[in-house]
Design a protein around this nucleic acid. Structure first.
Length: 574
DNA sequence: AAATACGACAACCGCTCAACT
DNA sequence: TAGTTGAGCGGTTGTCGTATT
C-alpha cells in the first residue's frame, strides 16, 4: 500500500516544489461554482501534492469511500469531491497495479475492447472471463484503473494508426468473420427477438461468458434467482461448457430489474446477475468496489500474480481466454458506441450521424451485398462491440487511404475472394494477416484455437503479429521490440503456473473482515449451486464481503470454490 | 545543444444515472 | 412525480519526460 502510494504519485517528489509554482503562482482553482461542495471556497485544481494525498487517505481511512463532497469539509482539502474521488480511485486506492501493462493485459484489453467498446471502467472491473474453450476462466486486469486502460488504448490507437495497422489483430478479424459465417450457416440467432436482446448481437447465440460480475445486493441476487427460473442454469452451464465457438444456442430470456448504470448498453453488470443471458459470477462492480478498499483481489498478492489463470493445460494461453467471440447481447437502450476517437484519422463522413454499423449481421449483409452503405442504413444494432465497428471503420480507412494494404491484398490466396466476397471490411483483415503472419487459413484454424494461437506461449502481444508458431508451427523469432514482451509473458506464465495455492482465490485478509451479507452469501451460494448443480453446492462458497460500505452495498465481493485449486479447470467442477 | 515529436500519465469536464427528498 | 444531489463514466486536455532530428 505504501508502495502503491509512492507509485501513485510519481510526480509528487517534485510536485511540492513544482506545485508551489504550479499552484501558488498560478493556482488552478475552481471558484467553487463547479462543485457542489464549493460553497464559495476556492477549490484547488491541478496535480495533487503529497500532503493532499495524505489528507485524502486519512479521510478515507476514517470515513470510508463515498460521500466525496464531504471530504473537503472533513479533511480540509480544498478539492472538489469529484477530484477526490478520482484521486483516490486512480492513485491512492490500495492494490492498484501500476507500471507497464503486461503482454497478457494488453491482450485482454484488446479483447475486452473488441467486446465492450470503450467501457473502460468495466474493463478495469473485470474479474473473470471464461476462456473460449469454456473449460476454464481467467482472472484479469486486477488493480488497473479505467483511466490507465483508457490511456493505454488511446495511445495504442495512435500508434497503430500511425503505423497503418488495424486496431485489432487480424485474428480477431478472422474470428469475427468466421463466426459470422458460422452464424449464417447455423442461423442460430433469432434476429427478430429484440425484446430479449439485441438481435444484432449476432453472436448472442453463443453461450456467453460467465464471469463474476455484478452481483449486487441480496434483493438482486434473489431477483437473479427468480429471473432465471425459466432457465435451467445448470444446463446453461453445461451448454457453456459444451459450447464450442460455433455452438449455437439460443440466448435465454432474461429480464432485468433495473438498468444498471452504464451497462445498459451492453449487459447488466451492477445488477449484474446476468451477462449475455447467463448468470454472472463476476462482479464488476463488486470487484471494483472491493478493490477500492484494497479488498479486491488477493490483496496481499503480488500484483503481478493477481493475473491469474485457471487454465493449467494451455500454459499461458488461458490469459488470452479466447472468449473474444462472445458478444454481449444488448438489453434495453443501447448507447451507440465506438469511439470516434478510435478513428480520428478516419473519414467518418460516411457514417454521418447514423449509428455505428451493425456488426456480424451487417457483415453478413455486407458480404452478400457488399456496398458498405448497405449496412450503414439499416443497422439498428447498437451492439457494443468495438471490433466489428473497427472492422468497418478500418475497412473504409484502409480501402480509402491505405492503398498499400489493398495492394498487398491482391496477392492473398489463403482467404478466398469468395469468402471475403467484396467485403472491404474484411479484406483488411486478410491483408493484415499477410502482414502479420504469412496468412492464416481461416479454415485451418479453429475458433477454439483461435485465441490460443494468438496467445500462445510465444508471448507475442495481440498488438503484434502472432508468431507463426501459433499458426503454422514454425517459430518466428519475435521482433526485437517484442522481446521484452516475450520475456514478460514467459515470466508471467511462470508466475501463473506457480500460483497454485488452493487459497489463491480466497482473498486473504480482507475476507477475514467479512461481516455482513450473510444472507446474500447463502442466497448466492444457492444460486451458484443451482447453476453448478446441486452436488456442487458444498464445494462452492461465496466469500462474503467486508463491512465496507461499498461491499455492503454489493452484498459480497468475491466467491470461490472450496477445495479447489486456484488453478483449475471448469472440468474439475462437479 | 536546441528544437521538435511523441508517449505516458494525470487531471478535469460534461454528461448521465440512481437515490433521495 | 419532479427536482436535487451524489457518484461514476467516458472524453478530452494539459504536462512532463524521452527520443529523434
Amino acid at each position: 500500500m505504501i508502495e502503491d502510494l509512492q507509485m501513485s504519485r510519481t510526480t509528487n517528489e517534485s510536485e511540492d516544489g513544482l506545485l508551489s509554482k504550479y499552484h501558488s503562482d498560478s493556482p488552478l482553482i475552481d471558484e467553487g461554482n463547479g462543485g457542489s461542495s464549493g460553497g464559495g471556497i476556492v477549490l484547488k485544481k491541478g496535480p495533487w501534492t503529497s500532503a493532499e494525498d495524505a489528507l485524502l487517505v486519512e479521510y478515507v481511512k476514517k470515513h470510508g469511500e463515498g460521500n466525496w463532497n464531504a471530504v473537503q469539509k472533513h479533511s480540509g482539502l480544498s478539492r472538489c469531491g469529484k477530484s477526490c474521488r478520482l484521486r483516490w480511485a486512480n492513485h491512492l486506492r490500495p492494490n492498484l497495479k501500476k507500471g507497464a501493462f503486461t503482454a497478457d493485459e494488453e491482450r485482454l484489453i484488446i479483447e475486452l475492447h473488441a467486446k465492450m467498446g470503450n467501457k473502460w471502467a468495466r474493463m478495469a472491473a473485470h474479474f473473470y472471463v471464461w476462456n473460449r474453450n469454456g473449460l476454464d476462466f481467467t482472472l484479469v486486469l486486477p488493480g488497473r484503473t479505467d483511466n490507465e486502460i483508457k490511456n493505454y488504448w488511446n495511445t495504442r490507437i495512435k500508434r497503430r494508426q500511425r503505423a497503418g495497422l488495424p486496431l485489432y489483430p487480424p485474428d480477431l478479424c478472422l474470428q469475427a468473420f468466421q463466426e459470422n459465417q458460422q452464424g449464417q450457416n447455423t442461423g442460430g440467432i433469432n434476429c427478430g427477438d429484440r425484446g430479449q436482446h439485441d438481435p444484432l448481437q449476432a453472436k448472442s447465440f453463443e453461450i456467453p461468458d460467465v464471469v463474476f460480475d455484478g452481483l449486487k445486493g441480496s434483493s438482486e441476487v434473489l431477483s437473479y434467482v427468480s429471473e432465471f427460473q425459466d432457465i435451467p442454469v445448470s444446463s446453461m452451464l453445461l451448454k457453456r461448457i459444451a459450447s464450442t465457438p460455433y455452438y449455437s444456442l439460443p440466448t435465454p430470456t432474461i429480464h432485468y430489474q433495473k438498468r444498471p448504470r452504464e451497462s445498459s448498453d451492453v449487459f447488466p453488470d451492477s445488477t449484474g446477475c446476468v451477462q449475455n443471458g447467463f448468470p454472472l459470477y463476476q462482479n464488476d462492480t463488486c470487484a471494483e468496489a472491493a478493490s477500492s478498499f484494497g479488498l479486491s483481489f488477493p490483496s496481499d498478492l503480488d500484483p503481478d500474480k493477481t493475473l491469474l489463470s485457471f487454465n493449467v493445460t494451455q500454459g499461458g494461453q488461458s490469459l488470452s481466454n479466447g472468449n473474444s467471440s462472445t458478444s454481449r447481447p444488448a438489453y434495453g437502450p443501447v448507447k451507440l458506441e465506438l469511439p470516434s476517437l478510435q478513428y480520428p484519422e478516419t473519414d467518418l463522413g460516411t457514417w454521418g450521424t447514423s449509428p455505428p454499423p451493425p456488426l456480424l449481421e451487417s457483415v453478413d449483409a455486407l458480404i452478400q451485398s457488399s456496398p458498405i452503405g448497405a449496412f450503414e442504413s439499416d443497422c439498428s444494432s447498437p451492439r457494443n462491440s468495438g471490433l466489428l465497428d473497427a472492422l468497418l471503420h478500418e475497412s473504409k480507412y484502409l480501402s480509402g487511404g491505405k492503398k498499400h494494404l489493398s495492394d498487398k491484398s491482391t496477392n492473398s490466396s489463403s482467404i478466398s475472394p469468395g469468402d471475403m466476397a467484396d467485403c472491404g471490411t474484411l479484406n483488411f483483415c486478410k491483408n493484415d494477416c499477410e502482414d502479420y503472419a504469412e496468412l492464416i487459413s481461416p479454415l485451418a484454424q479453429s475458433s477454439t484455437s483461435f485465441f490460443n494461437g494468438c496467445i500462445s506461449a510465444s508471448g507475442s502481444s495481440l498488438d503484434e503479429p502472432p508468431s507463426a508458431e501459433t499458426i503454422t508451427g514454425s517459430v518466428v523469432k519475435p521482433e526485437p521490440a517484442e522481446a521484452d514482451l516475450v520475456q514478460d509473458k514467459e515470466k508471467e506464465s511462470k508466475r501463473q503456473m506457480d500460483f497454485t495455492c488452493p487459497d489463491a482465490l480466497l482473498v486473504s485478509d480482507w475476507f477475514e473482515q467479512s461481516s455482513g451479507c450473510v444472507k446474500d452469501h447463502g442466497i448466492m451460494t444457492d444460486a451458484i449451486a443451482t447453476l453448478l448443480g446441486d452436488n456442487s453446492a458444498a464445494d462452492f462458497e461465496l466469500i462474503p464481503s467486508t463491512s465496507s460500505p461499498a461491499s455492503q452495498e454489493f452484498g459480497f465481493s468475491y466467491c470461490a470454490w472450496n477445495n479447489m485449486p486456484a488453478v483449475c479447470q471448469m472440468s474439475d467442477l462437479p
